[in-house]
């Protein structure tokens, strides 16, 4: 009896201590404790490297009075990690980066939380797609491609940005483009270099080293204008096709985010995106292009990207209506 009374007392004390803690948290300046960046994929992948580089730059710039911890919660094509973030309603101490699975996994019905269940914060880099053929290919410029009836290209997985772009190109040009799904970027590159597929669509990080080595030849880029790194290569728009699609490297937070925390992270990520450290450690290394979008603009891009994926996946019969 006595023991249980002590226990009740202890519980009451703990409760009041916690309550007190909350009170100071509300009145004090954000952030008061360590912030966690969730990576819904395994270590070593693109999302993981992006998150860790953001954390590094934030540390070097001394933007946060607390630590930014990177935590991997992989599994089920990102569903486990993204679900965890979506359920942290209003928790200003959780962040995550956006990836293709962020859109496609909920569209496939493998996760109940889609992009509307997150608060867009900012985009801090942009990765365009380069259409490239192998050195021995008969296609020297995009004009050579226009004359053919049919082409093949590769993709990692069934739904990806290359699939999206190939569909857009097929619809715009009238060339039949068949996409062969592979299991990894390395296999797509092997197929392109070995001439087993006609062309590939890839990010600068994988394509530029091959172009510099003379093993791949660029034909077009997926941005509105030309790329700084490939000034001689036209964009699809220049060639007369209404195709523009890039991958934005962006950050989201859980839903119902307090304005204070959102503003904090928006300006923090702006500082990251504009810093020389970010240029050196991310943009130069992965050959991405500089780009910053704030919460509102990034939110619009999320919406339009989701529409694109929905269309393409309905066309492929992957979304049951």
């Amino acid at each position: 009896m006595r023991a249980s009374k002590t226990l009740v007392l202890l519980l009451a004390l703990t409760a009041s201590a916690c309550g007190g803690g909350n009170a100071t948290e509300e009145s004090g300046a954000y952030p008061l404790k360590d912030v966690t960046m969730i990576v819904p994929f395994g270590a070593g992948g693109g999302s993981d490297v992006l998150s860790r580089t953001i954390a590094n730059v934030i540390r070097e710039l001394k933007i946060l009075p607390v630590s930014l911890l990177v935590e991997n919660r992989p599994g089920s094509s990102g569903a486990i990690g993204y679900t965890y973030v979506a359920k942290q309603k209003g928790n200003p101490y959780t962040l995550a980066t956006v990836s293709v699975s962020f859109f496609t996994t909920p569209l496939l019905g493998a996760s109940e939380f889609n992009f509307r269940n997150f608060t867009p914060v900012a985009a801090i880099a942009m990765s365009p797609y380069i259409m490239a053929v192998r050195e021995a290919s008969p296609y020297k410029t995009f004009d050579d491609v226009k004359k053919v009836r049919r082409l093949t290209t590769g993709t990692v997985g069934v739904v990806s940005d290359p699939v999206l772009l190939a569909r857009m190109l097929q619809n715009a040009s009238g060339i039949t483009i068949d996409t062969v799904p592979f299991d990894g970027e390395g296999e797509v590159m092997t197929a392109a270099l070995g001439g087993h597929i006609d062309f590939m669509l890839g990010n600068p990080g994988e394509i530029l080293p091959q172009i510099e080595a003379g093993t791949l030849r660029p034909l077009a880029v997926s941005t509105a204008g030309r790329l700084l790194s490939l000034p001689a290569v036209p964009s699809f728009k220049e060639l007369g096709y209404p195709i523009e699609h890039v991958q934005l490297r962006g950050v989201v937070m859980p839903p119902d985010m307090p304005q204070e925390a959102l503003t904090f992270w928006e300006s923090a990520l702006r500082r990251v995106a504009e810093s020389p450290e970010w240029k050196r450690e991310y943009l130069d290394r992965f050959r991405d292009e500089p780009r910053f979008l704030g919460s509102v603009e990034f939110g619009k891009v999320l919406e339009s990207t989701n529409t694109l994926y929905t269309e393409i996946m309905s066309e492929l019969g992957l979304i049951k209506r």
Binding site: A43, G44, G45, D48, V49, G184, E185, G186, E187, M189, T190, L193, G205, E206, P209, Q210, E212, A213, T215, R285, F286
Partner: peptide, 26 residues
């Protein structure tokens, strides 16, 4: 060639990038 042929070599590729080397045929 700068091509990761397996899950493990894909991680090694990430490692090369993170130490500032450009994997590729060169």
């Amino acid at each position: 060639l700068g091509i990761p042929g397996s899950g493990t070599t894909a991680v090694l590729l990430g490692g090369l990038l993170m130490v500032g080397l450009q994997p590729g045929p060169l």
